[in-house]
Every structure is written in structure tokens, then in C-alpha cells.
Design a binder for these strands. Structure first.
Ligand SMILES: [Mn+2]
Ligand SMILES: [Mn+2]
Ligand SMILES: [Zn+2]
Ligand SMILES: [Zn+2]
Lengths: 136, 136
DNA sequence: TAACTACATGATAATGATTACAGACTAAAT
DNA sequence: ATTTAGTCTGTAATCATTATCATGTAGTTA
């Protein structure tokens, strides 16, 4: 549990609380999600600390920032790179753990060095499919 | 030029100005980019109208909304679906016109119907590569 | 063409998310 | 004990976006 040593920043109670929340988290929480969860056990927790900590963790590669939800940021505690499937109806997000080797032609590459990729699949989740049907 | 008839909304001078701006646009403008460009020739243009028009165009499939830039929305006037290569240094965005058929296992699909995908490639653009080198 | 009406405009206010700030605090290090 | 570097919190400020509403007008219809 206390393998947080090697993150490379000071371990404060607030940060540990945030890390503990992220540790087992399967979803893609917003800063507010993190705050709401952590403030319960840590009533003095400030929003600023949540943002600061998420930023620090991002810089250290412990969380990834997703820009899937327009207008607010989501964070991904998943440690290995993966892709996402987003429901166009309800915006539910599902992980796709798989890696793709995607060729890009020299010309399209435009001189860039490509270091990785992230795929956002779009689709309809089962419950949104149902809603569509019953809406007829 | 005036093939805007079939968009399915009222053609006002403001909307025509916005459409004209988007027409030839190769990049991925924000609402502010659009506003700044259009207000020059149309000094009474309001930000609200830009947002409304972009929203209406999005609903009609005339522009796509990109969630590449966290914290602000970008719009893509490109008519055909395509992918993007983003510089991790300066956030420059380059189009990748190519389509990928990406398999997703039944299990990972989680009951979704998948309708499309969008790949975000990450890399370093030529000028950011130079900066890295000279920073040593 | 004139009148009508649903829809669009634009100035501004309100909201929501994020960032900036500054003083208080904490845990080493001297 | 004093210093120091880094962190925490509450709050203010900022930035992008959305909502409001009185006024204007495009497209339709008579
Ligand atoms: Mn994920
Ligand atoms: Mn594009
Ligand atoms: Zn759904
Ligand atoms: Zn660059």
C-alpha cells in the first residue's frame, strides 16, 4: 500500500488520500470527483490541493489527462497505456486494453517524430441502444 | 460559393461570414479564432452568435468538435473524417488523412455498437525537436 | 409586395472549471 | 531554535462557455 515513496514528491496526508482514491479507481474521474471522494475522510481538503496534486502526478506520469469530455478534464489512473470507447449518447467511457501499430506515411508525418497514439472509439452503449429503440 | 442553402438553417449575414471563414480554413480554430477573424469584416458580430452558429453547424455535421485541447474547444471544418497528430511540445495539430480499421474484441466492446474511431497521434514537431537539441 | 412569425442577433449577466495568490503550516536541515 | 523549501487552504481572479431577453430580420405566406 505504501509504495508511494518513489513518486518523487513529498508525501503529505492529503496527497496520500488522493493517491489512495486513485489507486483502486477504475473510471476516469474529474477533479471534482476526486475532491468529493477525498473531502469525506479529509474535511479540510481544498480544491486547490486536488488540482495541484493531479498536476504533479501528471508531470510524473502517474495519471494521464483525458480530453474526452469537452469543458472539463478527466484523469486516468490506469498505469498502462490504453484506448477508450465513448458512448455518443451518454458519454460513458470504457477502457480498451490493446495496442495498435498504426502506420503513418512519411509525407503525412510532416517531419514529426511520432511517439504514441491514442484511439477514441465512438459507439452506442447497450442502455443507449435500448433508449433509441423504445423512442420509436 | 452560395451552396449554403442546404445546410438547413436560416442564412443570415453573420452565418455566411462564419461559413466563409470556415470554408477555406485548414486548421482547427477555437470559437475565439472564428470570432476574431469574422469581427474584422463584421464589427457587430457577437461571441454568442459564434457559439450558436458553431453549435448549429456541429448538429448538422458541417463541423466537428475536437477535444484535443484541454480547457478549450476546437472545431474542424474538414468535411471528411480524418485523424490528428499533435506535437507534445507546442500543441501544433496536423491532419492525417487516412482511415484505420481497428479491431476490438467482443469482450472489450462491452456490448457497444462501434460506429467510428479517431486517432490522436503524439509526437514532436520539427521545430520542437530543434529546441530540445539546442537546450542541451 | 406586405404582413407575419419563428428564429437569430447581440449586449450583458451568469455559470462552471481552472488558476493565481498569499499567509499559515510542516518537516527536515543547520 | 532558526532557517528553508515546499505544501496547504481559503479566496479571489481568470477564462471559456452558456443563458437571458429585448430587438431585429429571413423566409414564408397571403
Ligand atoms: Mn482509461
Ligand atoms: Mn483536422
Ligand atoms: Zn450510452
Ligand atoms: Zn512542436
Amino acid at each position: 500500500m505504501e509504495h508511494y515513496r518513489d513518486i518523487g514528491f513529498k508525501l503529505t496526508p492529503q496527497r496520500i488520500a488522493i493517491l489512495d482514491f486513485l489507486e483502486g479507481h477504475k473510471g476516469h474521474p474529474t477533479a471534482e470527483d476526486v475532491y468529493k471522494a477525498v473531502v469525506k475522510r479529509f474535511p479540510t481538503m481544498s480544491f486547490a490541493t486536488v488540482y495541484n496534486t493531479l498536476q504533479a502526478l501528471k508531470e510524473r506520469g502517474r495519471v494521464a489527462e483525458l480530453s474526452i469530455d469537452p469543458g472539463k478534464r478527466r484523469f486516468d489512473p490506469g498505469r498502462e497505456p490504453h484506448h477508450h470507447l465513448v458512448c455518443t449518447g451518454c458519454r460513458r467511457i470504457v477502457d480498451i486494453h490493446r495496442s495498435y501499430k498504426l502506420p503513418v506515411s512519411e509525407k503525412e508525418r510532416a517531419g514529426f517524430d511520432i511517439t504514441g497514439n491514442h484511439v477514441e472509439f465512438h459507439g452506442r452503449c447497450p442502455s443507449c441502444k435500448k433508449k433509441l429503440l423504445s423512442a420509436v
